Simulated assay, not measured.
Amino acid sequence: SGKTTFLKTHFSEYQYVNLENLDTRKFATDDPNGFLAQYDKFVIFDEVQRVPHLFSYLQTKVDEDKIMGQYILSGSQNFHLMQNITQSLAGRVALFKLLPFDVSEMQDANWLNDDYAINLQKGFYPAIYDRNIPSKVFYSNYVQTYVERDLSELIHVKDLKQFRNFISLCAARAGQLLNLNSLANECGISQPTAKSWISVLESSYIVYQLQPYFSNFNKRVTKSSKLFFYDTGLLCYLLKINDAESVKLSSLKGSLFENYVINEYIKKNYHNNLLLDLWFWRDAVGHEVDLIWQNSEMLNLIEIKASETIMTDMFKGLTYFEKLKPELIQSKTLVHTGLFNQQRTLGKVMSWKEIVF
């Protein structure tokens, strides 16, 4: 998602050390004290998970030196990186997540198309735009190198075809309630294996789970999470949707657009360090709110519709929920595929291009 470029650009006063380099990695592995004596402060260690035992030496050094911002640690294998940080550097670090571009970043770079489906299918990884790489080529390489090689090695996958199939099955369930038993059965693996594989995909920022909102409602509410992909370009690649027109004709259009919009809220929440809680809500008879975010004690309701034509009944989920908790509702918003905003009696109509909290 552009970590190296970001670090080199915004922390140009820091030395940059890439531990993918075999000679550098050997130095750090064979002589960690000498390595840290040479790179003693204001250094970026990229792909630092490649030298896991270095974290213990870093712990000693930062405790002795007491220099704020002494090191910046970056890595693409988040699972290994976080595992080592929590073991050796807990309480000594600030953690930052860098997700693919959000809409405002795309607009700033003049890369955002007015057709939502073009952006959705193409995806939001920087290399696609910066290097003008066709999205199909980019995601083919991404899946083969990062998803299939790195992740399958991480969890010791014996049958790569089965792991590939599992990821594709996850893609077909994007925007749906996560049923691990069903997913495991269809893939031919055990439920604990499915749970483990989902966990690694989450740790690696391939997928995430949106949790349901709970409260003391009279009706029974859904307690299962929903599964989403961090990048819709990867999602479309896995679903073999290769152009914008195919997005619009797909039976999964609604789920794809929902994933796209919720991603935008997730990214803005992370990128702006808002630390807001995000949920969805659904009851046993099918009433649903696609996204809920909380501001202090007040709730903000989001309905997501893959349509440019706004009909009154599109607000019915928001209206139903508002009747359950009228004293808690701060705003109701319908996000759609068009380019216009409106203020209606039932709530605000917002374009996908102008999503704000």
Rank of each mutant, 00 (worst) to 15 (best):
S1R: 00
K3P: 10
T4M: 07
T9G: 10
F11G: 07
L19A: 05
F27G: 04
A28Y: 01
T29D: 05
P32I: 11
Q38N: 10
F45T: 12
F45R: 02
V48W: 00
Q49G: 12
F55Y: 02
K61R: 11
M68T: 08
I72P: 00
I72N: 04
L73E: 02
G75W: 00
S76N: 14
Q77P: 13
F79I: 03
L81M: 06
Q83R: 06
T86N: 11
T86E: 09
S88Y: 05
L89E: 04
L89H: 07
A94Y: 12
L95E: 09
L95G: 04
L98K: 03
L99E: 05
S104A: 11
W111Q: 05
W111T: 10
L112C: 12
I118Q: 02
N119Y: 08
L120A: 04
G123A: 09
Y125C: 14
I128M: 02
N132W: 02
P134A: 11
P134R: 05
Y139L: 06
S152P: 04
V157D: 02
D159Q: 12
L160Y: 10
R164H: 14
I167H: 00
R173Y: 01
G175R: 06
Q176I: 08
L177P: 01
A184S: 13
N185F: 03
E186M: 06
E186R: 02
A194M: 02
K195D: 10
S196W: 04
W197Y: 03
L201E: 07
S204N: 11
S204D: 04
I206G: 01
L210D: 01
L210Y: 00
K219W: 03
R220I: 15
V221P: 08
K223T: 14
K223P: 06
S224L: 15
F229E: 03
Y230R: 01
T232D: 01
G233N: 03
L235D: 04
C236H: 05
Y237A: 12
K240G: 08
I241Y: 02
N242R: 06
E245F: 08
S251K: 01
K253Y: 13
K253L: 11
G254K: 01
L256T: 11
F257H: 02
N272C: 10
N273K: 13
D283G: 12
D283M: 12
D283A: 09
A284G: 13
A284D: 07
L291Q: 01
I292K: 00
Q294S: 15
N300E: 13
M311L: 06
D313L: 07
K316I: 15
K316N: 15
K316L: 09
T319D: 14
F321G: 06
E322W: 10
K325V: 15
S331F: 08
T333N: 04
F340W: 09
Q342E: 11
G347M: 15
G347S: 13
G347Y: 14
M350D: 09
F357I: 12
